[in-house]
Design a binder for these strands. Sequence first.
DNA 1: AAAAAAT
Length: 513
Amino acid sequence: MHFSELGLGPEVLRAVEEVGYTSPTPIQEKAIPWVLQGRDVLGCAQTGTGKTASFTLPMIEILAQGRAKARMPRSLILEPTRELAAQVAENFELYGKYNKLNMALLIGGESFGDQIKKLERGVDVLIATPGRMMDLFDRGNILLTDIKILVIDEADRMLDMGFIPDIERIVGLLPKIRQTLFFSATMPPEIKRLADQFLLNPREVTVAPPASPAATVTQALVVVDEMDKRQALRHFLKTDDVKNAFIFCNRKKDVATLHQSLVKHGFNAGALHGDMVQSKRTETLEAFKTGKLDLLVCSDVAARGIDISGVSHVFNFDVPFHAEDYVHRIGRTGRAGKSGRAFSIASPDDGKLVLAIEKLIGKEIPRVLVDGLESPELEFEEGGRRRRGRGAAAPKKDKAEVHRPEPRRHQDRRPRDQGEDVVADSPEMDAAPRASAEARPPRSESRDRRDYREDRRGDERRDDRRDDRRRRREDQDDDRTPVIGFGDDVPAFILRAARPPKPAEPDPAEPEV
DNA sequence: AAAAAAT
């Protein structure tokens, strides 16, 4: 199947060709002809399937005829997050290169002025998040009477985010005669109801979810005490050949503190969450995309849909609250047939969350150990009583067998504070051999621990048991090589540890347009 | 529980 067989015009085809794609993905192949015929489409597809181009390409084609009048856009695309909206806008720019279409991106956090100016000039394509869209409408800057095509993207996520009332209101303002394209990764009853309400005799297009990340992404999980999480993360960052990575936190404030901590440790990291100024969000994401930033510490704002090719790792600094988010997060790597690695850092309290994830993905996430860090067992609450178990398996006696040599090309990217010229603020716990814990001046204490304690200042729930453990650890011999030891139950992972396995399915590598 | 989205 070739793009030229879908009924797209020469301008669009030329743009597609220049980007380097020759054959459409399944959803593009199925949906584009229907869209071109003016039919409503109900698309059941996730990001990563080429979904975006399945509506942008035919829309460019359709909108190439005719011209927009001032304030009367001819099409409207609704997206759940600002970043996704921006991504769709880029898509239009890319493929609309040879069709002169006017486009406006209406998202919050950016000045009204420019957006209003564009609307005044007349736009063919309006790409918006619901809040800003309604705001501008209520101010009288948009007339929706000329909308010919409506796209509702990621409907299930809109539902999760509580946007459905907004969406219903917006759709109520549109002409009844129009073409509607409705996409959702899942079809729960509430979404089905919406689809019935918005669509007229739609063609249903369903594509299998892209090879589940569970198959294309090598996963591992470490259980450490809450206060050791940063050190565990840094260990992975330095020893696992990390080219670039998403690092997910559950809370915005933790995104900020972890980001600061990583920067202090010399990592080239940026931060992204929904409370940041939009200009910073855009700038940071762009820097990460173009490789100016190696690491992106982020909240779940970036968990879904964000498409950056060639991300080598995903780290869950926190185990996500919702199991589905785990799948979305690790799906940021291992894209387009490439391999990816995902490490999750759990604290003992995360037992239930880990179980939920393993149930969802249908397998156990291989446990790993970080040398030098104690790995407590996961705890599960059951009927008020605590049951423990299924943490990491006991470390292997024979370390040599599972020893992974300290890598190599990371050395040059490594924070400068490693080694002898350790300065006062220098944090790395293992940086230099030291005497006993008692003999050490307080400032050589790990920064993490200080930060951690500062975070918890005033929090009386300090756990003496932990202090004991900590002392024991600090007394340990210090000239150890950081190694990941693997639990007994995961021999396959050990064998492949140095090189991620090929995806289970030799992915046909359908180019995503 | 948290995060997302309008100011």
